[in-house]
Design a protein around this nucleic acid. Sequence first.
DNA 1: CAAGATTCGTGTCAAATTAACACTAATTGA
DNA 2: TCAATTAGTGTTAATTTGACACGAATCTTG
Lengths: 234, 234
Amino acid sequence: MTTYNNQSKLLAAVDCIIFGFDGLHLKILLIKRGFEPALGQWSLMGGFIKKNEDLDEAATRILKKLTGLEGIYLEQLHAFGQPGRDPIDRTISVAYFALIDIHQYEKQLSNDYHPEWFNLNEIPKLIFDHTLMVEAAKEKLRYKAAMHPILFELLPNKFTLPQLQTLYEEIYSASLDKRNFSRKILSTGLLIRQKEKDKINSRRGAYYYKLDKGKYEKKFQSFLNIIPNSHKLR
Amino acid sequence: MTTYNNQSKLLAAVDCIIFGFDGLHLKILLIKRGFEPALGQWSLMGGFIKKNEDLDEAATRILKKLTGLEGIYLEQLHAFGQPGRDPIDRTISVAYFALIDIHQYEKQLSNDYHPEWFNLNEIPKLIFDHTLMVEAAKEKLRYKAAMHPILFELLPNKFTLPQLQTLYEEIYSASLDKRNFSRKILSTGLLIRQKEKDKINSRRGAYYYKLDKGKYEKKFQSFLNIIPNSHKLR
DNA sequence: CAAGATTCGTGTCAAATTAACACTAATTGA
DNA sequence: TCAATTAGTGTTAATTTGACACGAATCTTG
């Protein structure tokens, strides 16, 4: 026997939950589905896995197709395989979540997909089980960000501590003490203060910081405890 | 258009990494593959996903087929989809990991699969990408157990603190201070001390404990910090 | 150009948590 | 009954955490 007989084949797809942060709110990028079924309805960006493509490759390809971006933080989230989740044909979808700097994205809007950013609490009805996927992605992002220095991926190359704090506050719907926050963040040693200040968002101006890339790679697995009592969440 | 034309279909499978603990060592259960290709080689227990089956269902079915057990801790680990990972036909496999009480298993060995338990550091060469899967499962188990009270799943209904400590020590290749260990574990309030003692493993005997199931469900998300400096691991 | 408004940046202290550490108690087997 | 083994427990010092408030820098406006 050199084939697997009698096993039913099915379609395999990838869907991407793309997070961005506009300085105030955490958002995800949705598209208007361009083909039947559910043409015109809001959907995650996705696509079928090609014949000679690995899952990660497929996700990277799809992310690039929508955003034009490469070298993005991308992580496999979960495989979804309910029979009937796609009404047309049995399809397993492997969901990925991506964190992008929303400003890099905005520069190049040229798409057939009519993509739009939605605040997390204003997400429209989505096709299939995409709402489930988004929920799972939100949860995983919160889980992971409580322990790993991951949220930098949502900010520009240079960012300020107030920006970073706002992002944490948005993600955890919590307000944080800025003295404790900066103490914890700076104690990781991951940030390098720049000489320039951001004078756009305040009169006085806040120092820009950059990630220490070397330490970032090494320390990625380190656990932060940015959110006081984050272990009591949920 | 009411079908997805021109998309290539493929096979979808589930593979299970089954962990057990014999009181001394953490082990995984492997089988001798019963069909070509790679007949007779060591492999994870797995199977194709059926026509009307969800992924979790498939994993549950496969776990039951091998161990006879139901109601087992089972969690999706990762989807593996390298083209060519199965030399016969393009197959995506969704890996699950399971934690079982090895003693419940031992009671009923009656299998065509010739299953055997292997210590984690004595795992033989496995087919396809199963070695990768096992590595990922080990890592995830260590990650998760550092923060969630999950290891009880590997122990019998009644267990002693020394047993539990040995399990933690085995998983993290660390030796722990038993005073600090018991303080931390008991402070979760998850354990209920029984009146009987385990007189098998020591002369003096150690109290048995049972899980407080109610609190366990509620507190599952709680973060423990059993391993001092677990955040410095890896 | 002075006064007011805004937001940034920083330090202390008390409370809680953590890690390090050693001895007595219970039981069995010789 | 003595020796050997393993269980069970408490204190202290160090570290980490959370709560808390004010002066500094800069821009705007009158």
